[in-house]
Computed example of a mutant assay.
Amino acid sequence: MKISVELFGAAREFSTKSHLDFELIENSSIKDLRNQMIEFIDMKFKGNESFKKIIKSSAFCSSDDKIVSDNYKIVKKQNFSIIPPIGGG
């Protein structure tokens, strides 16, 4: 199933588009999506550790504006947002 991830904050550097699309099998989890994004960074950006750190530390938000955990099951075509942590002073 096709999953679209809207990119926000530092994650916008992952693509010239505002989103990335991934193909996942049914009943995948956010953890599986996170792992596919890391594989994408490994291939497209030669394993850029800063980008991978962004993915590992980011929250994911469902299309109904709820933060979802890594265990959240994706059972249908869905859109998510990746929300990187924001540093402050």
Score class of each variant (00 low, 15 high):
Ile38Ala: 04
Lys66Phe: 08
Asp42Ser: 08
Asn79Gly: 12
Asn27Thr: 03
Ser4Glu: 10
Lys31Val: 04
Glu6Phe: 13
Glu26Phe: 11
Ala11Lys: 05
Ile67Val: 14
Met1Val: 10
Gly47Trp: 06
Lys66Leu: 10
Ile54Arg: 02
Pro84Cys: 04
Asn79Leu: 06
Phe80Pro: 01
Lys56Arg: 12
Thr16Val: 14
Lys2Leu: 10
Ile83Gly: 02
Thr16Pro: 07
Phe8Ile: 04
Met43Ala: 14
Ile86Val: 15
Leu20Pro: 12
Glu39Phe: 09
Asn79Thr: 05
Phe60Cys: 04
Ser28Cys: 06
Gly88Trp: 15
Phe60Trp: 02
Ser58Cys: 08
Ala59Leu: 08
Lys46Cys: 13
Pro84His: 06
Phe60Gln: 01
Tyr72Gln: 10
Gly88Ile: 15
Asp42Leu: 11
Lys52Ile: 07
Glu39Asn: 07
Ile25Ala: 13
Met37Thr: 08
Gln36Asn: 13
Phe40Tyr: 15
Ala59Thr: 11
Ser29His: 03
Lys73Glu: 13
Lys77Phe: 00
Ser50Ile: 11
Ala11Ser: 13
Leu24Glu: 01
Arg12Gly: 06
Val75Asp: 08
Ile86Phe: 15
Ile30Ser: 07
Lys46Trp: 09
Lys66Tyr: 05
Ser28Pro: 00
Tyr72Asn: 05
Gly89Pro: 15
Phe60Leu: 03
Ile74Gly: 05
Glu39Leu: 13
Ile83Asp: 05
Ser69Asp: 13
Lys77Ala: 01
Ile54Trp: 07
Ile25His: 12
Asp21Trp: 00
Lys17Tyr: 14
Leu20Phe: 09
Arg34Met: 05
Val68Gly: 01
Phe45Trp: 15
Lys31Glu: 14
Asp70Cys: 07
Ser15Ala: 13
Ser50Glu: 14
Glu13Tyr: 14
Ala10Gln: 15
Tyr72His: 14
Lys73Gln: 09
Asn35Leu: 14
Lys77Tyr: 00
Lys53Tyr: 11
Phe80Gln: 03
Asp64Glu: 08
Lys31Ser: 08
Glu26Ile: 13
Phe45Thr: 07
Glu13Cys: 07
Phe40Trp: 10
Phe60Lys: 03
Ser62Gln: 01
Ile74Asn: 08
Asn48Leu: 01
Phe60Pro: 00
Phe8Leu: 15
Arg12Phe: 10
Asn35Cys: 06
Gly9Asp: 12
Lys31Tyr: 02
Asn48Val: 11
Phe14Val: 04
Ser57Pro: 01
Leu33Pro: 00
Phe14Ser: 05
Gly9Leu: 14
Ile30Thr: 03
Gly47Ala: 11
Pro85Asn: 08
Ile55Lys: 01
Gly9Asn: 10
Asp42Lys: 14
Asp42Thr: 07
Phe60Val: 03
Phe14Tyr: 13
Gly9Gln: 08
Asp64Trp: 01
Lys76Ile: 02
Ile82Arg: 00
Lys56Glu: 06
Val68Ser: 02
Arg34Phe: 04
Pro85Thr: 09
Ser62Met: 01
Asn79Trp: 01
Lys44Arg: 12
Ile38Ser: 04
